[in-house]
Design a binder for these strands. Structure first.
Lengths: 220, 220
DNA sequence: TTAATAGTGTCTGTGAGACATTATGGT
DNA sequence: ACCATAATGTCTCACAGACACTATTAA
C-alpha cells in the first residue's frame, strides 16, 4: 500500500534533494588541532535508503578514510542552495574527536592526510561549505574541552596533569590558567595513587577519568 | 551542463529522501509553557527546490499556522527510518519562542491550538517523532532562559522583576531562587528609573533588556 | 494600622585568580 | 649543590545561597 496525497501523488513525485553527511574528524597531532581530509575534502557520502544518518557517517568514514569504531555526533544541516555544483545537496555535518594513533592506519591510504584545523587559509580552500563545517566542529569540541577533562579520551590512561593541560592547550588554542585548571580538573579525575618516574623534576601524580558519574552530579 | 558521476549518472538517478521541516512554536500561555499544534501536529512542510530550510520553515508557519515575522533556529535532524508511514522522510526540527499575543490571530484558524509543552501524555500522542522534537525544543529554550533575561522577548517593555521571574518560572517549570535571580538578572537589565503604580504593595522598579552587548562581555 | 509586595543589608561558604612556598626528583 | 618540575598553601575578590530587615503602597 503506497501513500498518496490529495492529488494522487506519491512522495517521490515531488522534487527531493540529495542528502549527504560530512564529518570533521578532528585530532591533536604534534600539539596542534588537526582535521582529517580525504582527497582534499571532509569524508562524506550520500545517504542511502533505509539508512540512518549515523549509519551513513560510519560507512563514509570506513570507505573514505579507513576509520572504524567511532560515534560522531551531529552538528547541523548546511543548506546553502549554491553550496554544491553537482546539484541540490544538503549536508548534515558531524564531528568526531579521535586519538591520532587511531588514524595511523588511515593516513597510509592515498589521499588521506591531516590539515591544521584552525588555519583559515586551509579552510577557505575546502569545497562546498566545508570550511564552515570545520569551524563549527572545532567550536563544538572546544566547548566540551572547556567543561571536562579530555572528554574524547585522546590521552592513554593514566596521565599526568601536565599532559592533560598540554592536550587542552592544543584543543583550545590557548593556555588554560594553571591553578584554576588544576583545581577544576582534579575534582573531575580519579587519582591512581601512583606517580611517574624518570624525567626531570619532581614526579607527577597520575590520573584516570571518572568511570561512573557520581549521583551528586545528577542533582542540580 | 549537468554533472554526472563515474557511472554517467546524475544525482537524481539515485534514491533520495524527502526532507521536511517541523517547527515547535513555543509560547507561555496562562503561566504554562505551550506548543502550537496545527491539525494535531507541529507545523511543517516539505522542502522545495531552491529553498533554504529557513525559508521552508517560514513558509510552513505562514501557511499552516498564520505566523509571520519570526526566525526559528535549527535543532537537529530526526531520521528514524520508520518515523513517517508515507515513506522515506527526514525532518529538520526547528524551535521558536513567540509571545502568545502574536499567536492570537493564528489561533482563530481552524485546527490551530495550543497544548501543554511539558505534558508527556500530550507528546506521546503526536505523530512521527514530534514528541521528541517538542522535548528537544523545550530543553533548548530552557537553556537560554537559564542564562539570560527573557531572551525571546516575550515580555513587553518595560517590565518588573516579578513579571520576569514569573515568566522564567513558567518556562523552566520551577521557581528560580529569589535572591539569586534578582541579582543575576539586574546585572543583565537596564533600569528605566521609573516604577509601576497601581496594584497592591510597594511599586516595582521597571526594566528593559540590554540594547547592545557591552564590550566587557566579549572578553573571556 | 495592617497586609502585601518590593527592595536592601549582610553573613557564610565556595571557588577563581594570583602568587609564594615547599617537595622531590635528575644532573 | 643546583636546577627543573610538581605540588601545596594562602590571600583576595566575587558571587551564590540564605535570611533578616526596611520601604512603600493600598485597603
Amino acid at each position: 500500500m503506497v501513500w498518496r496525497d490529495e492529488h494522487g501523488k506519491r512522495l517521490e513525485d515531488y522534487p527531493r534533494p540529495s542528502v549527504a553527511v560530512d564529518t570533521a574528524v578532528l585530532t591533536v597531532d604534534d600539539g596542534r588541532l588537526a582535521v582529517l581530509l580525504a582527497g582534499g575534502a571532509l569524508p562524506g557520502t550520500f545517504l542511502h535508503p533505509g539508512e540512518t544518518l549515523a549509519d551513513a557517517v560510519l560507512r563514509s568514514l570506513r570507505d573514505k578514510a579507513g576509520v572504524v569504531g567511532r560515534s560522531p555526533r551531529q552538528l547541523r544541516v548546511f543548506d546553502k542552495p549554491s553550496r554544491d555544483p553537482r546539484g541540490w545537496v544538503l549536508s548534515v555535518a558531524h564531528v568526531d574527536m579521535v586519538p591520532v594513533a587511531e588514524l595511523a592506519a588511515a593516513l597510509t591510504h592515498g589521499g588521506v592526510r591531516l590539515a591544521p584545523a584552525d588555519d583559515a587559509s586551509v579552510l577557505v580552500g575546502l569545497p562546498y561549505e566545508q570550511g564552515e563545517i570545520v569551524a563549527a566542529a572545532v567550536e563544538a569540541v572546544r566547548a566540551e574541552y572547556r567543561a571536562e577533562p579530555d572528554p574524547s579520551a585522546l590521552l592513554d590512561e593514566p596521565f599526568t596533569l601536565a599532559e592533560l593541560r598540554g592536550l587542552h592547550t592544543a584543543v583550545l588554542g590557548e593556555e588554560p590558567m594553571r591553578d584554576t585548571f588544576r583545581r577544576y580538573m582534579e575534582a573531575r579525575l580519579k587519582s591512581t595513587g601512583e606517580t611517574t618516574d624518570g624525567g626531570r623534576g619532581r614526579p607527577s601524580r597520575t590520573w584516570r577519568r571518572m568511570s561512573a558519574i557520581p549521583a551528586a552530579a545528577t542533582r542540580g
